[in-house]
Design a protein around this nucleic acid. Sequence first.
RNA 1: GGCGCGGUGGCAGAGUGGUUAUGCAGCGGACUGCAACUCCGUGUACGCCGGUUCGAUUCCGACCCGCGCCUCCA
Length: 462
Amino acid sequence: MIRIYNTLTQRKEEFQPIEPGKVRMYVCGMTVYDYCHLGHARVLVSFDVITRYLRHCGYDVHYVRNITDIDDKILRRADENGEVFTDLTDRMIEAMHEDEARLGVLSPTEEPRATAYIDEIIAMIHKLVASGHAYAADNGDVYFAVDSFDEYGKLSKKKLEDLVAGARIDVREAKRSPADFALWKAASEGEVSWSSPWGEGRPGWHIECSAMSTCCLGDTFDIHGGGPDLLFPHHENEIAQSECATGQEFARTWMHAGAIRVNKEKMSKSLGNFFTIREILESYPAEVVRYFLVSSHYRSQVDYSEENLAEAGRSLTKLYLALRGVMPSKAGVVPETEHDRGFMEVMNDDFNTAGAISVLHAVANDINQQRREGREDEAKQSAAVLVRLGSILGLLQQDPEAFLQADAGGELSAEDIDRLIQARADARKNRDFAEADRIRDELADKGIILDDSREGTTWRRA
RNA sequence: GGCGCGGUGGCAGAGUGGUUAUGCAGCGGACUGCAACUCCGUGUACGCCGGUUCGAUUCCGACCCGCGCCUCCA
């Protein structure tokens, strides 16, 4: 039985899908006007692990993650670049897919794009206008009337009167209430636009997610997720739009990832303190970045720092060292172990990946001990368990040598390294330890660490 | 100001009303030519003050501190 923390109720709840055995999940994806940063990676990886685990538990997961490919920021950026906005979005979508692939994020079941759902968006707005939840303003915009929805604020725990009183809300003449938000924005001269009953224009932010989620998953679905900064206003507004349009409960469980921080501040576009995924991947292997993200709970805030990434690298290396030189038994034939059960127990508690990783280390410890005691068959079984559990977190799926030796040596080729290792072996045989140590130091300077064993010497990157 | 989250050993990071994860770093030992790898051992950490309790880091209350949202942001 899986328990999930629901932002809506502010407590962990037993997860019961609407349709037994099937999970319908929608996660807010990117607005594609720039490269993904580590905060995006957090959401991508968190919901990837959640999807993998739910599937491991036997659920048929229908995972929808949208792409918002039309909005003001996109148009502004395209304008700055002097390009057609679709060129910008196409490029960013391709980059996003590359980043995801490198981080081992599986593709969602569906990846709808806002521009492909304009008709559905218009239909939903039409419904809202017809039912009195929205109104067309004189300037051609269509707004959602927030006071027409009694439950507005139920997700973010905000009171409408506080919002209206807030000084930071944009007060536009056309709005009836300052808290109202745009469903449809009238186009100015020369702007990208679509025809609608309210004139030429484009969708406002929020409505595209309401339209795409209900079209792909139905009026009510199981899980809706996203980043922490989407809770308000984006998700609050989605609830208002969807529940008013369909008359049904929107999403049962709301899940929000924690923020990534840099020097105690949230990593964000507006603060400019963000690191893009591709930037980080220049310095760290993708799996290390993934391990770093998975090693803390998805809801907690995590601090990005060089030291934390480096530590994640050392920790992951330890797991791969345990796997090195052990051919795992066929995963399918290895029966469930106490480690599998321990792993599931912690994962069932709101996807506690930090606890799950401690199980991985316990298995690695078993492997090391078993090999040490010459129990090779048991070690192979344990290795199979480690790879099996790792796959649920999207980790440990590489050949250990590939991980341990990737991008190492600088100008030294693998052949050069092997030659030096052989030279050192000869020196050691001749008990010329000064020469042997000199070679080892030379390799160490190049970032190569040597590991000796009875079977010979292996190397890895520092 | 309103709302929400959090303060765990040197660091990272889980968790629990009493047996006190895990990783990194450190220390001692084994292994090694010496190291690395690995194994064994080692550290009585739970912001502060009260309360409940036989017993609280874990429950309750106050306080201090940090962070997030309230405007675009994952």
